[in-house]
Design a protein around this nucleic acid. Structure first.
Length: 561
RNA sequence: UGCGGGGUGGUCUAAUGGUAGGACAACGGUCUUUGAAGCCGUCCGUGGAGGUUCGAUUCCUCCCCCCGCAGCCA
């Protein structure tokens, strides 16, 4: 059959390339990828796209994926970052097995490759200052000028390179450069730096090295050392691909890995660059890398996002070469969809309004049975205490409600979820006009929420028993940036932060079971949203982060009027 | 005005010579012991001009627009 063979169809252009390579027997028809983060910050959802791509590609073609820390710049990197990165990759659901590597593992080998390049007359030590090198590089339209040190003998270059390693020269005094072509139309190829002197302590190799390889030199060789077949990276490295290939071919590396570039992820209402995220942290615009408003994996985790929802998102956005910005609504959709399936439903009230049920006996206490998830019987049921005084959401009562308002108002009857029909008989206000208390009657025949006489009500409200209310602090999050594309335009992106990205509600209450919620536990607060218990919780005050709100069509109706 | 990439509904993404499809968003309806979810429907697209062809998103030519590159960052 000619049918689009289900499993074998390439799911993106990279898989198309790989399938062609497999067919042609390239790399022995094996696939080996790697995720190569620099440990200079926390992973964000943009990295998740790359992680998912690399790991699932390997999985799909029965290959392997390595985790490799690209740690060639000790001044910016540290062990805190490597640990958080490993934690985040694991949390996302991927395993690198025994294949945890560091570019710094290869420093000695890399040094040897550099010597080989020098002996072949393909690299030289340049004494020009950084300023001079920059000046002589030329421009986009003008060729560069050869360095006066470009034609040193191989022996002299080897000796100088050894001296660089031995610490004979200060930072910046010399640099090892590839000898390619100072008039190349691709500026990357104008004798790029391969090694620089940096008398910095490295988080893994300590003070052993005074010279460190540059990305372009280290990356392609690390890939080849690990037997990587397809080296997947982002678009901004496209110009570097000729250099990637030049180094490997100059060193006569067999079966050179193939670099393939794809478009990095952008999302509306946030920023995804480590530099910018670091600034938000350093300038205290957020509480840290794991602030629930941050697009970091640690932030999303704390916010209540599940690894499954993030993986689903990464699959849905696709992999292509077109620059694109994904609507953050898609991310939110993914987490709602996942949580809708799994989250236990409970009742909580963000702004409590007391309701006294006048005809309910004062000393009476009963337990109402409530299902935990209407779409999943296995989630079971729980008991919720019920007595004369309860709390409902302040916004669920209107003194003078419009016709389309289905909730409580004078003389109106509604259902208390799982419990009884109640009817508003009266209410009281304080001097300022604020409603202070609602007085209702209930219909004992409607226990469980059904009326035997077939009487219908339009609204169903969540409620919390006043005597057993668990005090909650709720943190309501909105987009970090008010502007959909904070990086566009000339203004500093920080000026586009959303001043209302965090709203803290201290007086909320919830069902008694919420008092004991463990950090990371997720619930759907009926009619309100998905909430995740936070590590800031303390006895007497459970803290919840709102992961995502539920759709609110009443808000829409009332807003458009 | 160098080189390298890229242009499909509002946003992503399929279709590679044969009915432009899907998702998210928006809008409307339906259902409902969550005004949730679900279900149904609507709106909306091949950057432009030529050419080849019975037929072009796909192939050719020219043009336009967008992104990246001048770190001893990655």
């Amino acid at each position: 059959m000619e049918e689009k063979n289900a499993g074998a169809a390439p799911s993106n252009f990279i898989h198309g390339i790989i399938e062609r390579d497999i067919e042609q027997g390239l790399y022995g028809s094996k696939v080996h990828t790697r995720f190569p983060p620099e440990p200079n910050g926390y992973l964000h959802i943009g990295h998740a796209k790359s992680i998912c791509l690399n790991f699932t590609t390997a999985l799909k073609y029965k290959g392997l994926c390595n985790l490799r820390f690209d740690d060639t710049n000790p001044e910016k990197e540290n062990a805190e970052y490597t640990e958080s990165i490993m934690e985040d990759v694991k949390w996302l659901g991927f395993a690198w097995g025994e294949r945890l590597f560091y570019t710094s593992d290869y420093f000695e080998k890399l040094y040897g490759y550099a010597e080989t390049l020098i002996r072949k007359g393909l690299a030289y030590v340049d004494d020009q200052s950084g300023e001079e090198i920059k000046k002589n590089r030329g421009t986009l339209t003008e060729a560069g000028k050869d360095s006066p040190f470009r034609n040193r003998s191989a022996d002299e270059n080897i000796q100088l390179f050894h001296e660089m390693r031995d610490g004979k020269y200060p930072d910046g005094a010399k640099v090892l450069r590839a000898k390619i072509d100072m008039s190349h139309s691709n500026i990357t190829m104008r004798d790029p730096a391969l090694y620089r002197i940096k008398r910095a302590s490295h988080h893994r190799t300590g003070d052993k090295w005074r010279i460190y390889p540059m990305y372009d030199f280290a990356h392609c060789l690390s890939d080849s050392i690990e037997g990587i077949t397809h080296s997947i990276c982002t678009l901004e490295f496209e110009n570097n691909r000729p250099l990637y290939d030049w180094i490997l071919s100059s060193l006569e590396i067999l079966m050179p890995p193939k670099q393939i570039e794809f478009a990095r992820l952008n999302i509306t209402h946030t920023v995804l660059s480590k530099r910018k995220l670091l600034r938000l942290v350093k300038e205290n615009h957020v509480s840290g890398w794991d602030d629930p408003r941050m697009p970091t994996l640690s932030g999303l985790r704390r916010r209540g996002y599940t690894p499954e929802s993030i993986r689903d998102f990464c699959e849905r956005i696709g992999v292509a070469k077109t620059n694109s910005t994904i609507d953050i609504a898609l991310l939110e959709h993914c987490v709602r969809e996942d949580l809708n399936r799994r989250a236990r439903r409970v009742m909580a009230v963000l702004e409590p309004l007391k309701v006294v049920i006048e005809n309910y006996p004062g000393g009476k206490n009963e337990e109402i049975e409530a299902v935990n998830n209407p779409d999943d019987e296995r989630a079971g049921t729980r008991k919720v205490p019920f007595s004369k005084e309860i709390y409902i959401e302040r916004s669920d009562f209107m003194e003078d409600p419009p016709k389309k308002f289905f909730r409580l108002g004078p003389g109106r009857e509604v259902r208390l979820k799982h419990a009884y029909y109640v009817k508003c008989e009266s209410f009281t206000k304080d001097a300022s006009g604020k409603i202070t208390e609602i007085r209702c009657s209930y219909d004992p025949a409607t226990r469980g929420g059904d009326s035997p006489d077939g009487r219908k009500v339009k609204g169903t409200l969540q409620w919390v028993p006043a005597a057993h209310a668990a005090p909650l602090e709720i943190r309501l999050y909105d987009h970090l940036f008010a502007s959909p594309e904070p990086e566009s335009g000339d203004d500093d992106f920080v000026s586009k932060l959303n001043p209302d990205s965090l709203k803290i509600i201290t007086g909320a209450v919830g069902e008694p079971c919420l008092a004991g919620a463990e950090p990371g536990e997720t619930f759907q607060f009926l009619r309100t949203g998905y909430f995740c218990a936070d590590k800031d919780s303390r006895p007497g005050k459970t803290v919840f982060n709102r992961t995502a709100a539920l759709r609110d069509s009443w808000a829409k109706i009332s807003n458009t009027k």
